[in-house]
Structures are given as structure tokens and as C-alpha cells.
Simulated scan of single mutants.
Amino acid sequence: MKIAVMGAGAVGCYYGALLAAGGHALTMIGRMQHVQAMQRDGLRLSAANGTEFVVPVQASTETAAVQGAQLVLVCVKSTDTDAAAAAMAPYLAPDAVLLSLQNGVDNAERLQAALGRPVLPAVVYVATEMAGPGHVKHHGRGELVIGPSADSDRIAEVLRAAGIPVEVSDHAMAALWTKLILNCAFNAFSALTELPYGRLVQVTGLLPAMREVVDECLRVAHAAGVTTLEDEVVWQAVMRIAQTMPGQRSSTAQDLSRRKPTEIDHLNGFVVRTGERLGVPTPANRVLWVAVKARESA
């Protein structure tokens, strides 16, 4: 299959490397330093199990490189979703399947509105970071949950054949909200302390503060009509993150360390805005949102 990855960051490079290793024709679209490294040396993956391999891929800084792709993995930051949709629109094949592998709950909806075509939402549970130009490091997990559609089962089989665990679920929106809550619980705290998840939860007073953030998110989700989320089940999922990804620093922390804009407006900021619209107070999420925005400004 001809596959394009729009946004060759840590998530896009991880799944792109697995698909390329599985024999698919990969085109990675990203920033110049990563593109040049992949053109010269291939895409390098250091896996959590200690294995390491390099796969040849096509790489480009031009969005036109999505042309002819049968599957497009959209992996750009939530802040870049609308711009990416506008840039891709003239080049997408009529029968191309788009899969959003992004943080937040509304990216697939935003892409779909901008492009006027279906976009599959996916919930991504993976710990990765870019270790250097064209080099992605995997810290753990890697499963996906994707929403149902006429193409979902076919795309899921392609992904599974490349070694990517995939579940097709009617409850993808609840799963997206659960992932959003996990991000709201960890990302800002990790960014502000520069600690990985395993050490973060050992900080005195951190867990009760994190529980306040999670409880606010749950109240907002319930008010928004996502009623299938169970409070204790979500909290247990939060605790599992620290166990399964102890060495991971959040993407928000990685962005701040590189002096890049973060996705905090689409994480805790999204919860704050949705809470305001629905009349649900979110003081804990507001403090984290504003604190990260202050760090961005600095």
C-alpha cells in the first residue's frame, strides 16, 4: 500500500517505521532536518525491547507528497490541523483513507469539516520521542483504537500485519476522551517539572492534585454527553500510564524543552473552554493551562 505520513514527528515516525518494515511504500512529510536525514540515511527506530532497525522511506517537506497515497496518517500537532487540511486538500486521492493519530478529541471532526470527506479518529497509546533527525525512540506501548467505518476493518488489518495492535470500536469517542484525560493529567505536570511519569507520581501531593484534574475532566465529559466513562476505570487508566511508561516525558515537556509551541490549548485548555460552555467549573485544569502558556511565553 502507498502510505503518506503527514507530520513526521515521534508518533508519525514510529508508525511509519513499522509500516515501512512491513513492506509498504512510505512517504514521510515533515521538517527539513528530519527529511534530509531520512533521505540520506533512512528512518531509524530504536524500539523499547532493545532492537533497532533502519528502513528506507521517501521523505519530503512538501505537502504535495500526499498525492497518490491510499492511506494518509495525519500526525501533525493539534495546533496545525486546520493548516494541514488546507495544504493537503488539492492533492488527496478521491479514494484515500485519512486516519487522525493526534491528541485531543476533535481533530478528526475538524479535518472532516475542512476537507469535506470522512476522517477516521484514532486513539494512540504510545510513548515515543525523536532522539535526533530521522531517529525515533520508542519507550513503550503502541496500540491504537479506531472508530468504525466502511474502511476501518481493512485499515486495521493493514496495521495489524505490520505489528501494530488495533481495536475497531464503536466507543471511539469515549476512548478519545479517556486519552484526553490522561494527557490532561500528565502532560502539564510533566512539562512544568521536567519529570518522567514514573518519578512524577512520587512527588508529594501530586496524586491528589492529579485526581482533581481528572475529576474535573470527567464532569466536563459527562456534561458533554460522554456518559460511558466510569470515574474509577479512568483513574485506574491514569495510574497504569505511570507503570507502563515510567521513563516517558510528555509531548508538552518535549515541546517546551525545544522551545516549540505546545498543544496545551487542545488539552487542558480544551477542557476549560468546554467547561465554560457547559457551566462546569475547571479551576485545576485552568491553572495548568495558564502555567504552561506562561512557560511558552517565557
Results as ranks from 00 to 15, higher is better:
His139Leu: 15
His139Glu: 11
Gly163Pro: 04
Gly163Asp: 06
Thr128Gln: 12
Ala127Trp: 08
Pro165Ile: 08
Val166Gly: 00
Ile146Trp: 03
Leu144Ser: 06
Met130Trp: 00
Asp153Arg: 12
Val168Met: 07
Lys137Ser: 13
His138Val: 08
Ala162Gly: 06
Glu167His: 08
Ala131Tyr: 07
Gly134Met: 05
Ser152Lys: 08
Met130Leu: 15
Pro165Trp: 06
Met130Gln: 14
Glu157Val: 02
Ala162Leu: 05
Leu144Ile: 09
Val166Leu: 00
His135Asp: 02
Val158Lys: 00
Ile155Leu: 14
Leu144Ala: 06
Ser152Trp: 07
Gly163Cys: 07
Thr128Lys: 07
Ala161Trp: 01
Pro165Lys: 07
Ser149Thr: 13
Pro165Arg: 08
Asp153Tyr: 05
Val158Met: 11
Pro148Tyr: 04
His135Thr: 06
Gly147Asn: 04
Ser152Val: 06
Ala156Trp: 11
Gly142Thr: 11
Val166Ala: 00
Ile164Asn: 00
Gly147Lys: 01
Ile164Asp: 00
Ala150Gln: 13
Thr128Asn: 12
Ala150Met: 10
Ile146Gly: 02
His139Asn: 09
Ser149Cys: 09
Val166Trp: 00
Gly147Asp: 06
Glu143Ala: 12
Val158Gln: 12
Ile155Glu: 12
His139Gln: 15
Asp153Phe: 06
Glu143Met: 13
Val168Trp: 04
Ile146Tyr: 03
Val168His: 04
His138Ile: 10
Gly147Tyr: 01
Gly142Asp: 09
Gly142Ala: 10
Glu129Ile: 01
Ile146Asp: 00
Leu159Gln: 05
Gly134Asp: 03
Val145Ile: 15
Glu167Val: 13
Asp151Cys: 12
Pro165Thr: 03
Thr128His: 06
Arg154Asn: 11
Val145Leu: 14
Val158Ile: 15
Gly132Trp: 02
Glu157Asn: 13
Ala150Ile: 12
